[in-house]
């Protein structure tokens, strides 16, 4: 009996360990190309620091905006408040299934070749500016936020909201004191997934905002510039940074998940 259990455990452990090892080998393989000192030097360059700063700022802004705009829409979809909710959901999820470059190109056409688009561009200066980064990243990230939030709201039984209403809480207060805390796990996940996805966003950003040094140069765009310019040292530094940022973000995500589960908030 015990033997079988141990064999079973082995069947889970072996592939997990092998895959993790495989990932480590792949992720670190780039670094044998370059001297550590070159990487260190690039790390302190002004350009790379600019790219890190810009990436963090745009990703944070985009994740926050997507969350704020995601809550009412995801809630409406989860509770079936809007007639034709499925059509709405489909429309809002389309960018999720498109190659990011296609999203960027579509946005570029909109802002340069349509009347409302050009008007917006004139007002806010979007094409080939850092604001373009925000717009491009938003379109890529918003569908993810919507999905995760909707799942979260689905898991909150409306009976809790009903009780809250009868106890004197308005719809808005109920959202703040009951629905959001009960879906806090999903809200956190949505934010972090959006943040991580925005950090790595390249296709849509480069198409709409361009690859302009010290202007629209996020980590992925800086990486693109250094690789095409043959600057291997800074490329490696950027790759390392993106790995570290991704690692830290994902780890935080997992920690927060565990914490909200420990609080019993996740149970529906």
């Amino acid at each position: 009996m015990r033997k079988i259990v141990e064999m079973g455990r082995l069947a889970y452990c072996v592939p997990s360990i092998l895959l993790a090892l495989g990932f480590i080998v792949v992720l670190t393989s780039l670094f044998i190309w370059v001297q550590p000192s070159t990487i260190l030097q690039s790390l302190i360059s002004r350009e790379i620091r600019f790219a890190i700063g810009l990436s963090l700022i745009t990703s944070f802004t985009v994740a926050t905006t997507a969350l704020v705009l995601g809550v009412p829409v995801a809630y409406a979809m989860a509770r079936g408040i809007i007639p034709g909710g499925r059509l709405l959901e489909t429309i809002l999820l389309i960018p999720f299934g498109m190659p990011p470059v296609a999203v960027g190109a579509t946005l570029l056409v909109f802002f340069t070749n349509t009347r409302p688009g050009s008007l917006l561009d004139e007002l806010f200066r979007i094409v080939f500016t850092p604001r373009g980064l925000l717009v491009a990243q938003f379109f890529v990230v918003y569908p993810i936020v919507l999905r995760v939030l909707k799942n979260g709201f689905d898991s909150v039984n409306p009976i809790y909201e009903a009780v809250s209403r009868t106890l004197g809480y308005t719809q808005l207060k109920t959202m703040i004191h009951v629905t959001l805390p009960m879906a806090s796990h999903s809200v956190l996940s949505a934010f972090l997934l959006a943040f991580i996805r925005a950090l790595g966003e390249f296709g849509a950003s480069v198409t709409l905002a361009g690859a302009i040094r010290f202007k629209t140069e996020t980590i992925p765009i800086a990486l693109y510039l250094s690789i095409s310019g043959g600057e291997l040292g800074s490329a490696m530094a950027l790759i390392m940074i993106s790995m570290i940022v991704a690692g830290v973000s994902v780890f935080t995500l997992l920690l927060l998940e565990e914490k909200s589960r420990a609080h019993g908030v996740v149970r529906a």
């Binding site: 039984n157 009976i159 809790y160 009903a162 009780v163 209403r165 009868t166 106890l167 004197g168 809480y169 308005t170 009951v178 805390p181 009960m182 806090s184 609080h263 019993g264 908030v265 149970r267």
Partner: peptide
Amino acid sequence: VPPEKRKVALVPQEYALFPH
């Protein structure tokens, strides 16, 4: 009149105590 202004209190079948 919306629920929050009715002065009724509901104890649902599944009790629905706020888990958080």
